[in-house]
């Protein structure tokens, strides 16, 4: 039997706008995320990605359907703290998720909240800052750091709780290319070295291409899912959903249109190998 860390069944969520219009953010999403997996969730604005992500952290209780995280039902508010310890969440704007005026104080915020003894908190803070390569900045004020560094501090803040899963909601959307690379490589390392399950929401297909699996959201539904190769193979469908396709996959698709048989590819290298055959 496979070990699933997040399971949703027919999960739906709707809300009313200020104008009184009913909006279905999620309509019947059923998915399973395995322990240790790196899953990317992509989709245009308003496709329900963030709403879905907030369910994983019990920030939103399910309206209908089921959401089970680490074996705990999200609908039961008694599980909330346990779920939040197990599933950390990193948001888009690094400025708006750092609480304290000192990097190490901020990283300590999570462990302090769950009442950990001080000695253990210091240990966790050291571990978390080292994991994202920010140990030299522990006595710095967050507003003096670059965007990428701030986002790494935010990741450390989540990591200090030693979660088994981390949900990142467009963590690189506000960063420059350098910051984006810093954050992405930190996330990849957490997944590969520490075995933390990653749910990575992004607009950047290049980032999604690195995942084990991609889930494409559209209008509150999971429209497509599968390995990057399989998903990008359906380039036409992706384009219809308003999404980009990485250049190699796009070239492969255009060639296929012209009648050249090209296998599913994701990277430039794979495309080159496929074409040279």
């Amino acid at each position: 039997m496979r070990d699933y860390i997040i399971v949703t069944e027919n999960l739906s969520y709707s809300y009313k706008t200020a104008g009184g219009a009913q909006i279905n953010a999620l309509s019947g999403v059923s998915l399973k995320i395995e322990r240790g997996e790196f899953v990317a969730i992509v989709g245009v604005n308003g496709s329900g990605k963030s709403t879905l992500a907030k369910h994983f952290n019990a920030l939103i209780p399910p309206q209908s359907g089921k959401c089970v995280v680490c074996g705990c039902d999200c609908a039961d508010s008694q599980n909330t703290l346990l779920i939040r310890q197990n599933v950390g969440m990193v948001f888009q704007n690094p400025d708006n998720q750092i609480v304290a005026a000192l990097v190490e104080e901020d990283v300590a915020f999570g462990p302090e909240n769950i009442g950990m003894p001080p000695e253990m908190i210091r240990e966790r803070v050291r571990f978390a800052l080292a994991a994202v390569g920010m140990e030299d900045y522990r006595r710095q004020a967050p507003h003096m750091l670059s965007g990428g560094q701030k986002q790494r501090v935010a990741i450390a803040g989540v990591l200090a709780l030693q979660p088994s899963c981390m949900v990142l909601d467009e963590p690189t959307a506000m960063l420059d290319p350098l910051g984006r690379r810093e954050v992405l490589s930190a996330v990849l390392e957490l997944n590969r070295q520490k075995g933390i399950t990653i749910v990575y929401i992004t607009h950047f297909m290049r980032e999604a291409a690195l995942a084990d699996r991609i889930i494409v959201m559209d209008g509150g539904r999971a429209a497509l899912a599968g390995q990057p190769k399989e998903v990008f193979y359906q380039a036409e469908k992706l384009k219809k959903l308003g999404l980009d396709v990485p250049l190699p996959a796009d070239i492969a698709w255009r060639l296929r249109q012209k009648g050249v048989s090209v296998p599913p590819v994701v990277t430039e290298e794979e495309l080159a190998v496929a074409l040279c055959r």
């Binding site: 952290n57 920030l59 703290l81 939040r84 310890q85 950390g88 969440m89 948001f91 704007n93 708006n96 998720q97 609480v99 190490e104 104080e105 300590a108 915020f109 999570g110 462990p111 302090e112 909240n113 769950i114 009442g115 950990m116 003894p117 001080p118 908190i121 210091r122 803070v125 935010a154 803040g157 989540v158 709780l161």
Partner: peptide, 20 residues
């Protein structure tokens, strides 16, 4: 946004909170 981020990091008031 900060309130959401704080909640996501297990903040639930001063009850049972320790300090580093």
């Amino acid at each position: 946004e900060l309130a959401t981020a704080m909640e996501a990091r297990c903040y639930h008031g001063g009850e049972g909170r320790t300090r580093m």
